[in-house]
């Protein structure tokens, strides 16, 4: 982490909406200087940066960005479909966004973290990366790869003071549910109720719940976590190997 005379810098990807947006708000509230990134550049990012006194860095930043103490790799894409019939390009695009994209960004931020003597990397995976899901093989594979990446990075970088971990949420109440509802031809409330029935606690996670998990791993309380996979999913992934 950088010295106490300046705030630590966090970079959150996929921050224009949902989980990334809430995470940026939470880290800013916890005292980080936050840079927010998203592939989309429609004004939401600038508005968020303005709201939290942060910095908007839209577009593909992997090659350009360093000087970060905490990386929250959250950007993701999902395109469900049957394994045998899905267009291979659609399949591999999810791996490119969810896994390879984060890989390049990690390579960009690690040198600064090394020079600074430490840092935190939080990879946003998914419960489906832990237990799989039908018609989501690309998503599950990419998220499982992200989990393994967190473990490997954890082992490799902890000796340099860089702590890498993953969070694997299950169902979260975000704008994405509206998309799911439209796909299913039902109302948003009906969609929420369908997902609640899949969760042992009957509660969808809020984006603030996941942002809190990020804040914990990024903050002083997370200092002994290496290569771990936090699963705030209301019990969805409890029964796993």
């Amino acid at each position: 982490m950088t010295g106490s005379s300046s705030r630590s810098v966090a970079l959150v990807t996929g921050a224009a909406q949902g989980l990334g947006y809430a995470t940026a708000l939470r880290l800013a509230a916890d005292g980080f200087a936050v840079a927010v990134n998203d592939i989309s550049d429609d004004g939401r990012l600038a508005a968020l940066a303005s709201k939290i006194g942060g910095l908007a860095v839209p577009g593909d930043i992997a090659e350009q960005f360093s000087g970060v103490d905490v990386l929250v790799a959250n950007a993701a894409a999902m395109d469900m479909g049957s394994f045998l019939t899905q267009d291979p390009r659609t399949w591999w695009r999810q791996v490119e966004v969810n896994l390879s994209g984060h890989f390049r960004l990690i390579q960009a931020v690690v040198p600064h973290m090394r020079a600074a003597g430490g840092g935190r990397i939080v990879l946003i995976a998914s419960g489906w990366g832990v237990i799989g899901h039908p018609n989501a093989t690309a998503y599950a594979a990419s998220k499982a790869g992200l989990i393994a990446l967190a473990k490997g990075l954890g082992r490799e970088l902890a000796p340099q003071g860089i702590l890498a971990n993953a969070i694997a949420p299950s169902y979260i109440d975000t704008e994405q549910l509206g998309v799911d509802a439209a796909d299913a031809g039902i109302t948003l409330d009906e969609m929420r109720q369908r997902y609640r029935e899949l969760i042992p606690t009957g509660q969808l996670a809020t984006v603030e719940d996941i942002a809190a998990a990020v804040a914990f791993l990024a903050g002083p309380g997370g200092s002994a976590f290496v290569g771990q996979v936090l699963q705030p999913g209301g019990g969805v992934t409890r029964a796993r190997a």
Partner: peptide, 15 residues
Amino acid sequence: EGVMYCGEVLSPNAG
């Protein structure tokens, strides 16, 4: 802040 953890194991174990 852990309302979403149900039967989970958190392991701060230095790796």
